[in-house]
Simulated assay, not measured.
Amino acid sequence: SIALAAPPGSLPDVKMMTLFGCGALLLRGAGCTINDLLDRDIDTKVERTRLRPVASGVLTPFQGLTFLGFQLLLGLGILLQLNNYSRILGASSLLLVFSYPLMKRFTFWPQAFLGLTFNWGALLGWAAIKGSIDPSVVLPLYASGVFWTLVYDTIYAHQDKEDDLKVGVKSTALRFGDSTKEWISGFGLACISSLALSGVNADIGWPYYAFLTAASGQLAWQIWTVDLSSRADCNRKFVSNKWFGVFIFGGVLFGRLL
């Protein structure tokens, strides 16, 4: 959203991109730390997660809490570099950051909560540049991120579905079951449609839509070729989402420049 908020013909604010890059790492890192602390008993029973630092005993819970405090302190330092509107908006995301790890205990839709949490930066980046949010641009962008998360994290969750059943936690992979591809196809379509709407409302140039077409192809490829019964293939398709992100960022960048 920082690149999308740049004036036509201009590159995105490099300082702000750097701050947000560091902030994203810290926010996601803090979320992972909270998740590891809260799920340490569950993680020992799941093949993929049993070697996580707290679950495996490499770190004690107190050491994990200390590290979390360090992450949040650094995050606060970044937040204080922003305008007041963005500070309030950024601080409000902490409710999602702290509550997301608990969702798998209560709902089959933890991936939706992950999407709401991880994509908060779509709102924050625009606000950091403009001093407020433009709902017609930012809300479709935020929604697209949530839908994208529902695609890639549902694929990711299929790696753990057998273990999740054993330990009694929930996921969209378990909720959708054999209908997963139909569900994530719908989310993929909603993601691309939301990105297109955001671009139209932001009055972005034609390269954005060319890159969006390429991103659509990448998303369709992973959805229709993923073998949901193969942990290795689910992980490969999950990792391939980096290219979807590259296409979208490239589209925004060149759409603003040209």
Rank of each mutant, 00 (worst) to 15 (best):
G250M: 09
I155F: 09
A128Q: 10
P101H: 13
P110E: 09
L141E: 08
L37M: 11
V252N: 06
M17D: 01
G145N: 11
S1R: 02
D203I: 08
A5M: 06
A24E: 07
D178E: 15
A232N: 13
P140Y: 04
L37H: 07
L253T: 11
L96R: 01
A6L: 00
L124A: 15
G199Y: 06
A215Y: 08
F108L: 03
S56L: 03
G115P: 14
S229A: 12
P12Y: 09
G131K: 06
I248P: 11
F147G: 07
Y209V: 07
L37V: 09
L253Q: 11
A5G: 04
Q81E: 14
F108K: 11
L19Q: 13
I192V: 15
D13M: 08
G255F: 00
K15R: 15
A196Y: 14
A128D: 09
V97N: 06
F108T: 10
F254E: 02
S179N: 14
L258D: 01
T172F: 03
I42F: 15
V169D: 07
A6I: 02
L197V: 14
E162M: 06
Q111G: 06
F176M: 04
D233R: 12
F20M: 15
F113Q: 07
I2T: 02
L189C: 02
E162C: 03
W221Y: 15
L116F: 15
P101T: 10
F244H: 10
V151D: 01
G205Q: 07
A3D: 05
L139K: 01
L4R: 10
N83D: 02
P61T: 05
V54M: 02
G29Y: 03
T66K: 12
L11M: 14
V200T: 07
L68G: 00
V246W: 14
I133P: 07
S194F: 08
E182N: 10
N241F: 09
S10W: 04
A232Y: 12
S185V: 01
L73N: 07
G9Q: 03
G177I: 11
V137R: 10
T44N: 08
L26A: 04
G64Y: 08
R50M: 13
S193F: 14
A127K: 03
S99H: 12
A128S: 15
D13L: 05
